[in-house]
Design a protein around this nucleic acid. Structure first.
Length: 355
DNA sequence: TTACTAACCTATTCAACGT
DNA sequence: ACGTTGAATAGGTTAGTAA
């Protein structure tokens, strides 16, 4: 398929997916918000119908506005309430309605979950059609399911995100291999992964600290990795500092330095066997159709090389044992790889248009 | 370029319902 | 009463859009 055409479609789809509410819709929503900031499912359903947008969008909008309202109230009343020593009254919500999923519906959802723990909007809509369950409920179902059924194949939940990244709803079919099986490039990672953001030492990199870190300055791996689940991220770089990097069925997880991983990854557009890694010198010819990505990769590669070197030097500092740190030597013995886990970075590159 | 905003995430908690 | 699980909240990120 022509590359420009592909990107045109991707872009169009991305725009289509990001729905900007018009003024009229916003006015209506604000009016409802004034009356009731916590509308129940039925009310949201009515509103969705009235405004011609999805119930999940209504839900998101109300969530956002409650957050804003709370923040404003907090800023306004903080001193006052502190002086009086009283808490803000908690909004008493109306009784929750609980959706009863049938066996048939649950089976379909579970099957979809096993295929993909992070379905994009297109998949959720398809599931909604199949099951008759509102898309927003399906979204919630997947959230709950992920929380309560950690992926046994993954060491951490963070790495579990690898299968969903950079999904493009317009071009991705449900059964298409995960994006990680294809090649992309992104430079946006520099912000999230650049050394200044790095915690002060190896202990902070352990998965046990992830939660705490995620609430402070270090982005959650999933968020570094993921971008948006709605498929609007055109490309994704995956890199995280979590301590566990495990082989995933779709993701590209290795303990090797990033530069090597990229190097290895490069062969993938036409990959069908474990052929030798192409050299990185200028004589290497990238297929014409992938020239764009090839160029991007050169930039990425330079960055990753720097990153990798920096990482190695930092880890050498943290874990001075020379036995485990041989900067520049990327051919890791498995045992060494194990010991180097704190520095492990898994990444995924994806260029192939998603379905 | 920057601020805003829609969509997404995890973690946690609440609560309905079946046993 | 308790376990399961749908629903909601809190607090965070990314990336497209508008100013």
């Amino acid at each position: 398929m022509d590359l420009n055409c592909t990107f045109g479609l991707l872009e169009k789809e991305a725009r289509r997916r990001r729905m900007i509410l018009n003024q009229n819709q916003k006015n209506t929503l604000h009016a409802w918000f004034e009356k009731n900031p916590n509308p129940d499912l039925t009310t949201r359903g009515h509103l969705a119908k009235e405004l011609g947008i999805s119930e999940s969008q209504i839900m998101t909008w109300f969530q956002k506005n409650r957050k804003i309202k709370k923040q404003v109230e907090f800023e306004c009343c903080y001193e006052e309430s502190q002086a009086q020593g009283k808490d803000k009254p908690k909004v008493k919500e109306a009784g929750r309605s609980r959706t009863r999923f049938s066996r048939f519906q649950t089976d379909i959802l579970i099957e979809a979950f096993e295929k993909n723990r992070f379905p994009g909007i297109a998949t959720r809509e398809k599931l909604a059609q199949q099951t008759g369950i509102p898309e927003s409920r399906i979204h919630i179902w997947f959230q709950n399911r992920r929380a309560r059924h950690p992926d046994p194949k993954q060491g951490t939940q963070a790495t579990a995100h690898l299968s969903q990244n950079s999904q493009c709803p317009a071009l991705k079919t449900p059964d298409q291999p995960a994006p990680s099986e294809t090649l992309t490039s992104s430079l946006s990672v520099t912000t999230a992964l650049s050394p200044p953001h790095t915690p002060s030492g190896p202990s902070n990199l352990s998965s046990g600290h992830q939660k705490q870190l995620s609430k402070t300055t270090v982005p959650q791996p999933s968020q570094v990795v993921q971008g948006r689940g709605d498929g609007q991220n055109s490309s994704v770089f995956i890199g995280h500092l979590s301590s566990v990097v495990t082989p995933g069925e779709e993701g590209f997880h290795t303990q090797a330095p990033l530069c090597l991983q990229i190097q290895e990854r490069r062969q993938e557009p036409g990959e069908s066997s474990g052929s030798a890694v192409p050299p990185l010198d200028s004589s290497t010819q990238a297929p014409a159709v992938n020239q764009h990505f090839w160029e991007l990769d050169q930039t990425d590669f330079a960055f990753l090389q720097h990153w990798d070197e920096w990482l190695q030097s930092m880890l050498a500092e943290w874990i001075p044992d020379e036995e485990y740190w041989t900067p520049g030597d990327s051919a890791l013995h498995p045992q060494q790889a194990q010991l180097q886990q704190p520095a492990s970075v898994s990444h995924q590159v994806d260029t192939t248009p998603q379905q």
